[in-house]
């Protein structure tokens, strides 16, 4: 049996395998270090960072649903400078590529956070969150209006030399439009998808299950939605796609890769089992090896339609 080549390139980042973690499900890095050998991952994607510290939403912030969960955490965080001071030293003892998810309330905010994070060498790429369903300002609007979307990607592109990956909103009429716009604005990759805008209500109190009233649905429940979006976007762009939404098993990851993703992110499944990402990596390698496929690249977008 051959040992398949699992390496993936996104812009200048070299991932030694096609598996990262979805922003917001893995904290800032240290939280899972006792459970997961972080250097086994293809990359680590940390929780959304804005230029200034942000307090986030009131509680309750999450609610479990059938094969998934709702969340409206609201992007609390220490701000870009706080993140660099508090968390970057931790990563000095690891070699895993670090992708920092960034967001802003205004186009200028996006530019500022990109500018600050352009400095530290340990930050290897930025994932631009234009699609958080849970912050009132900006957030989802930048992900669903293609002109605003372009203005954000242009602004971030102009402020950093590092690879930028744009995380798309799922709730758009035509994902191809946004995928192409990201590529045309100079993005190095696309993440598909963010959690899907959703809601739950307690019938006894008649109150929403989340303090923010609505949130984002994640987990296995959304995998088929993400699959279609990845498949559609892959038809119109040449830049790599990171597929995410319900990845819990190696088979889920392989399905995304066949649909057109070059890499995948494990999200909600980190909560179910912190060892999921490592199991997914090992399973992809075993499957490729058993099928005598030389590299993960050979599998990307091979769906027969």
């Amino acid at each position: 049996m051959n040992i398949p080549d699992l390496k993936v390139k996104i812009g200048s980042i070299e991932m030694k395998n096609p598996v990262t973690v979805a922003s917001g499900t893995f904290g800032y890095g240290p939280e899972y270090a006792d459970y997961v050998d972080l250097d086994r991952l293809g990359a680590i994607t940390v929780k959304g960072i804005s230029a200034e510290p942000h307090v986030g939403n009131e509680t309750p912030r999450t609610f479990e649903t059938a094969s998934g969960m709702l969340n409206a955490i609201g992007l609390p965080g220490p701000g870009a400078n706080g993140f660099c001071e508090k968390y970057l030293p931790f990563f000095e003892s690891y070699s895993v590529p670090l992708i920092v998810n960034v967001w802003g309330k205004t186009v200028e905010d996006y530019g500022r956070v990109a500018e600050i994070l352009d400095g530290p060498a340990r930050v290897n790429a930025l994932e631009v969150n234009v699609s958080c369903p849970n912050v009132k300002e900006g957030g989802a609007l930048y992900g669903t209006d293609v002109d605003l979307f372009r203005s954000v990607v242009d602004e971030v592109r102009s402020k950093t030399e590092k690879p930028i990956i744009i995380k798309l909103a799922p709730n758009v009429a035509n994902i191809k439009l946004f995928a192409k716009a990201a590529e045309a604005c100079g993005a190095d990759g696309i993440s598909i998808m963010n959690s899907y805008p959703a809601m739950g209500i307690d019938i006894e109190t008649r109150k929403p299950q989340l303090a923010n009233r609505t949130g984002g649905l994640s987990g296995p429940a959304i995998k088929p939605i993400a699959m279609k979006l990845v498949w559609e976007a892959a038809q119109v762009v040449d830049i790599p796609i990171i597929g995410m939404g319900g990845v819990s098993t190696p088979e889920d990851a392989l399905e995304f890769i066949i649909a057109g993703a070059s890499a995948v992110a494990v999200g909600t499944a980190n909560f179910t089992d912190p060892s999921t990402a490592v199991r997914v990596i090992d399973g992809i390698e075993r499957w490729l090896s058993a099928k005598n496929i030389a590299s993960v690249d050979d599998l990307v977008g091979t769906v027969k339609t």
């Binding site: 912030r61 969340n71 909560f271």
Partner: peptide
């Protein structure tokens, strides 16, 4: 006791307000 998701400090679901010198923090 709060509803929790990750249990390890990553997801920020189970936060409570803790007093600080200037106000509070999660």
């Amino acid at each position: 006791d709060r509803n929790m998701a990750c249990g390890v400090g990553a997801c920020l679901t189970c936060v409570i307000k803790r007093k600080t010198e200037t106000g509070w923090e999660w």
